[in-house]
């Protein structure tokens, strides 16, 4: 199994490095551009949640994103030491609502769940660990 890890700060500019990281991993796997885009989307949503909400006092902290893959699946493991938060428990948005009734936010976590085949959360050693698996 191959793997790569990127360490990032809780600064919004890091989104660009994260997108490049996902692209680099995708190139090694020779994934189709549409799949690369959807993976970048899911990972951006997960990482932005960490950057925006994990450290409410805005202290600069390191978080990590590991990618590991074989022929059958690509797994991303996102770890941060911020406030405990389990995104898998967030309620799905009601897609039947008209625009007027729709809240403006709440789509990010839903997109992660739609794009990835498996999403699971653990709180281990004071760290949030979000595992996202895409079947290949």
């Amino acid at each position: 199994m191959n793997q790569r890890t990127i360490i990032f700060k809780n600064r919004i500019e890091e989104v660009e490095r994260i997108a490049a990281f996902v692209e680099g991993v995708s190139e090694e796997l020779d994934l189709q551009p549409a799949v690369v885009g959807s993976l970048q989307l899911a990972i951006e949503e997960a990482v932005v949640n960490v950057i925006n909400y994990a450290y409410p006092d805005r202290t600069e902290c390191d978080s990590s994103l590991m990618a590991k893959w074989d022929d059958t699946s690509l797994t991303f493991i996102l770890s941060d030491s911020g406030v405990p938060f389990d995104p898998t428990r967030a309620a799905d948005p009601d897609l039947s609502l008209g625009l007027e009734e729709r809240p403006i936010g709440g789509l990010g976590i839903f997109l992660i769940k739609k794009i990835m085949n498996e999403v699971s959360y653990e709180y281990i050693n004071s760290c949030n660990v979000l595992t996202m698996i895409k079947n290949l």
């Binding site: 970048q40 989307l41 949503e45 007027e100 403006i104 936010g105 789509l107 990010g108």
Partner: peptide, 20 residues
């Protein structure tokens, strides 16, 4: 436009609401 994330969707929803 080759990519849109939820941040972009939020802009579209809020713009459409304001226009409407």
């Amino acid at each position: 436009v080759e990519y849109i994330s939820s941040a972009g969707l939020r802009v579209l929803i809020s713009a459409e609401k304001q226009m409407a």
